[in-house]
Amino acid sequence: MTDWAAFAGFTGVILAVLLTLAHLSRGIPHADGGDTHFAHDLDSGAPAVDDESESHAADDSHQTTDATEHGPSLASLSPASTPDEGREPRPATDEAHGPWPAPDQNHESPSANIPPHMLLANVAVSQGLLGAFLVTSAWYTSVPLSALGLSLSGLPSKLAVGVALGGVLYAVNRAGSSVSREFGLVPDESLRDALTPETTGGWALLLLVVLPLIAGFEELLFRGALVGALAVGFDVSPWLMAAVSSVAFGVGHGAQGRLGIVVTGLLGFALAAAFVLTQSLLVVVVAHYLVNALEFVGHDVFGW
Rank of each mutant, 00 (worst) to 15 (best):
R258Q: 13
F275R: 08
L220G: 03
N173T: 11
G224V: 01
F183G: 00
P47Y: 08
E88R: 14
R192D: 09
A132K: 05
G202N: 08
S180F: 01
L290W: 13
S137L: 00
I261M: 15
A57C: 12
E54W: 06
Y140L: 13
P212Y: 08
R223K: 14
H253W: 04
V172M: 07
P91V: 11
L148Y: 13
S246C: 00
N106C: 01
L74A: 11
A80C: 06
A67E: 15
H37E: 12
F38Y: 12
T264R: 12
E69D: 08
D60Y: 03
R90F: 00
E108R: 15
A5Y: 13
P91Q: 08
L191H: 05
D35M: 14
V186H: 00
V297S: 02
G86F: 14
F7A: 00
T11L: 04
I261Q: 14
A48V: 09
T196K: 13
H117G: 09
F234H: 11
Y140P: 03
P144W: 07
G201R: 11
G131T: 04
S61G: 02
I214H: 07
G250L: 00
D188E: 13
E219K: 09
G86I: 14
L226G: 03
S55W: 08
T36G: 14
G27E: 09
Q279Y: 08
E54K: 11
A194Y: 04
V286H: 03
S137Q: 01
A255E: 11
E95G: 13
A57P: 09
V125Y: 12
G265L: 14
L294G: 09
T64N: 13
T141K: 01
M241C: 15
G252Y: 01
G298C: 00
F249W: 01
A6C: 10
G303S: 07
S177Y: 03
G202E: 08
E182K: 10
K158P: 06
P187S: 05
L120R: 00
W304Q: 07
H37L: 12
